[in-house]
């Protein structure tokens, strides 16, 4: 039972953490290596709320705003000139990630931060006591996933974004301001990533470079998902389960690389990954 719950909650966490990167890659086809830094920023929003003595939940709106603003600046100043050089965009955003990581270090020090958890306690699930927060993560992941699907399929902005993904030249010919769609997407993706950073705080230690550990896993999951939300969800469930299984039965250390290795193998055998499943 614990195994099932572990698998589900791991998948949920992977989904939450990947979603910002996924949005940006899905629409812009740009791999944002500053993603790890956005996660870090979000986590430090919790440090700020703690210092101010307010509820850690307030870190969510704070992270959303900071992430959005920085994301907007990043798109405008760093990413926009590099749309034609996608490999260089990886490097430039990685460099930006270093800058943000060091700025956080300068402001808060390099030590691991102690912050109050968002939620404590356990819930009894069919006779097993299980962390309430990890269960909440499932609900949050579902909410984000549903939010994605609804926003993409039900709103005008979603329709426009899909049009830009499918055929940017035609979208432009129809008068869609594709530059604005890109900017909005990057801002939203960064904001969501920063919020994911807040949500990570109870599960991982908070230090300036905490995002880097998550970056590669997210990146690989997004690579196998293309621009399909459903594919991302499926990838998180399959590879999250595999990670828990390897971690439990083989070695917890090897569990950490399961996602990356399986994704790489999958791309070799099936270059489209889960997209189109």
């Amino acid at each position: 039972m614990v195994l099932v719950l572990d698998s589900l909650t791991t998948a949920a966490v992977l989904f939450i953490v990947s979603s910002g990167l996924f949005m940006i890659f899905g629409v812009l086809q740009i791999i944002n290596f500053a993603h790890g830094a956005w996660l870090g920023l979000g986590a430090y929003a919790t440090v700020v709320t703690t210092a101010l003595g307010v509820s850690p939940w307030l870190a969510l709106p704070l992270a959303f705003v900071v992430g959005g603003v920085l994301g907007g600046l990043t798109e405008r100043l760093v990413v926009r000139p590099l749309y034609a050089r996608p490999l260089d965009a990886i490097l430039a955003t990685w460099g930006l990630g270093i800058v943000i990581g060091q700025l956080i270090t300068l402001a808060f020090g390099r030590d691991v931060q102690m912050i109050p958890v968002l939620m404590t306690g356990t819930v009894d699930v069919l006779g097993t006591a299980y962390s309430a927060y990890r269960l909440t993560a499932i609900a949050i992941a579902l909410a984000i996933g549903l939010g994605f699907v609804l926003a993409l399929e039900r709103t005008r902005l979603g329709l426009t974004a899909r049009a830009v993904i499918m055929n940017e030249a035609l979208a432009r010919a129809l008068g869609i301001n594709t530059a604005r769609v890109r900017l909005a997407t990057f801002m939203l993706g960064s904001a969501v990533a920063a919020c994911a950073g807040v949500l990570l705080t109870p599960l991982t230690s908070v230090d300036p470079n905490m995002g880097v550990i998550w970056l590669i896993g997210c990146f690989m999951l997004v690579m196998v998902s293309g621009s399909s939300v459903r594919a991302l969800a499926l990838a998180c469930i399959v590879f999250g389960t595999a990670q828990v299984a390897v971690g439990t039965y083989v070695s917890p250390i090897l569990g950490g690389m399961t996602v990356a290795v399986l994704c790489a193998l999958m791309l070799r055998l099936r270059p489209k990954g889960f997209a189109g499943v």
Partner: peptide
């Protein structure tokens, strides 16, 4: 490198290899 592989794919693999290597060292 195989027929039809994108340049990005090689980069993806190049990210995975050091991660596997470090994890093996840790393990």
């Amino acid at each position: 490198f195989h027929q039809g592989a994108t340049p990005l794919y090689a980069t993806v693999i190049s990210l995975v290899v050091p991660i596997v290597m470090t994890q093996l060292i840790f393990a």
